[in-house]
Amino acid sequence: MTAKLKSQGVGQRQTLTLSLFLLIQTVGMVFFVGDVISDFRENPASVHFVFEATVTAALILGILFGTVELRRMIELLQSQEQALEVARGALGDVIDRQFQNWGLTPAERDVGFLALKGLDVAEIAELRGAAQGTVRAQLTRIYSKAGVSGRAQFAAFFVEDLLGQGVA
């Protein structure tokens, strides 16, 4: 979860940087084009005009390339996010089904989810407004129903599933 937020933050910072860069280029381009046009009116044959016109043309090309690149970056970020959403939904389904197979009660399912998310007993107890002893007892029951030795194996159960199926 945090890793995902971080990588997205980086992507978003990159698109913002590239956008600002494009903006500066465009502002520069507009002024250059204005200058080139007035130079053209004065003396179209001068070296100054030819040179400046070439530079401006290069700038315009750069802006177009930058635009396409930025669009590609934004679309890549969006598709990554979508893939993540799908994967998250799929994993949620897998967990739901497995919990049902194990015959967990609704309360145990909730606690199981929170435990998978990495919350410790105290946090789960606080979230659910229950005593820590209750949560500990629920976790023990979950582990025994799942036939795992403890929290590490419980979490590994689903990760192993993912790795086995080769879902990236």
């Binding site: 903006l23 465009t26 502002v27 507009v30 177009l64 635009t67 396409v68 669009r71 934004i74 969006q78």
Partner: peptide, 18 residues
């Protein structure tokens, strides 16, 4: 002139953007 640049950028983006 700055406004002209912004408008131009947005219109190009309307053709090439996401």
């Amino acid at each position: 002139w700055g406004l002209m640049a912004l408008l131009l950028l947005r219109l190009v983006w309307g053709g090439l953007g996401p």
